[in-house]
Simulated assay, not measured.
Amino acid sequence: MSAEASAGSHAAVSAQCVSPSTEDCSHRGLLGSKYVKLNVGGSLHYTTVQTLSKEESLLRSICNGETDATIDAEGWVVLDRCGRHFSIVLNFLRDGSVPLPDDHRELEDILKDAQYYRVQGLIQHCLSAMQKQKDILETVCRIPMITSAKEEQKMISTCRKPVVKLQNNRGNNKYSYTSNSDDNLLKNIELFDKLVLRFNGRVLFVKDVLGDEICCWSFYGEGRKIAEVCCTSIVYATEKKQTKVEFPEARIFEETLNILIYENSRISGGVHLLDSKGPSLGAGQSEEEGGTGGDHRVRRIHVRRHIMHDERGHGQQTVYKD
């Protein structure tokens, strides 16, 4: 309450000393009082001894004389503490509960005040709210965006989880797209979002919009690339070259499941399964194995290879060629 309430201070605080400079004043100032005026770091509050005594706290010990209180000449009990959140402490003592702010820093400040005044109920209330905020944050899906090759290398090498990266850059194309390429590109992005929600917390999903590939999936385990699914190709079947984007949903989902074998590998020592080849490919798919050092191999899957228009004779089937 504001300082105007000090007009009836002598009637409100019945046991106040006439001379606050005496030694007994700070010790006996609140004994027998009904109302209390508090000056907390310049923030003025008007309440009752009954409210301050509801919980075993520093405020109750001040009221019953167990803790000395400094009282100024106008009868205000002076507490050398920031009074920004003291109203929350008072409201909790009055009602037994109080709404808390969503801001984490403010919540920490209120917790510190509750600990200073030793209000155990408010301490538990703050801790529960902070735990709830932590649980909510852990369920939020955060997708890092690659901004440089150095950042990508550091992120993948230090991550304890398997990593799935989608590289999509529609603007990095000097040819026109085929009729359904835009739809397939969107389908790849939508699948990425669905996988993020499904495997959140188990797999780190990252996006790269700066690379050379238009649409390419990469799968990493133990800090190295395990598999790659390239969804783009150049089509020569028309008078002019066109870029084609495919949507190999089943293969992408399969490789995401395969990468889960590296989920706990860095913690438990891991199981090296790189020597085993992936399942057989569907029609129109190809697989290449490139050495990355030692026996480590990367499964590179190209959904479609280049279609060479001028290599097709009359009445011959389309020739697929790298």
Rank of each mutant, 00 (worst) to 15 (best):
G269R: 01
D72M: 01
K134R: 15
E246P: 03
S218K: 12
L166F: 04
C230Q: 09
E152W: 10
Y117K: 11
I214K: 05
V271C: 04
G65H: 14
L52F: 02
Q316A: 09
K321P: 00
S218M: 13
N91F: 00
D68T: 07
T22H: 09
V40P: 04
K34C: 11
I146H: 11
G294V: 08
M1Q: 05
E4F: 06
C126K: 00
P99W: 06
R198E: 06
T51F: 02
Y116P: 01
V163K: 01
I88L: 15
V303A: 03
E138V: 07
E108W: 11
R305H: 15
D310W: 13
I226M: 07
Y320L: 02
A69G: 15
L195C: 13
I307L: 15
I252F: 06
V18M: 02
S33I: 05
T238N: 13
H10M: 04
S43E: 09
N184M: 10
S181K: 03
Y35Q: 11
E151K: 06
S87H: 11
R299H: 13
A5L: 05
L185N: 01
D24H: 14
V77H: 02
V18H: 06
G278Y: 04
G291L: 08
S233N: 12
V164G: 03
D193P: 01
E56F: 09
R312W: 07
D80A: 08
G315P: 03
S181Q: 04
V271T: 08
Q50W: 01
F192I: 09
A149H: 07
V18T: 12
H302Q: 06
S19H: 15
T318D: 07
Y177M: 09
S280I: 08
R202Y: 06
K194T: 00
I71M: 01
L273T: 08
R170W: 13
G294T: 05
I307R: 15
R160E: 12
I261L: 10
E288K: 05
T139L: 10
L191C: 07
E190D: 14
S179W: 00
S97N: 12
A129G: 03
G294C: 11
I307G: 05
L281G: 04
L93G: 15
L195Y: 05
K134D: 15
Q120V: 10
I71E: 04
W76S: 01
G290K: 12
R251Q: 12
I189M: 14
Y220M: 00
S286F: 15
S14F: 04
S61K: 15
E289M: 11
I88Q: 07
S61T: 08
L44A: 02
D109L: 13
Q285H: 14
L204V: 12
N184H: 14
T243C: 09
A237I: 11
V319N: 05
R300T: 14
V49W: 03
V77S: 00
P279F: 01
G270M: 02
M1S: 06
K34D: 15
C216E: 14
I301V: 10
R251S: 12
T67C: 08
C216A: 01
M145W: 12
L79W: 00
P99E: 05
N188P: 09
D182F: 07
N172M: 03
L93Q: 09
V303I: 12
L137C: 02
A12V: 00
E66P: 02
N172C: 03
L281H: 08
S218L: 13
V235Y: 08
L38I: 01
G313E: 15
V163G: 09
D68A: 13
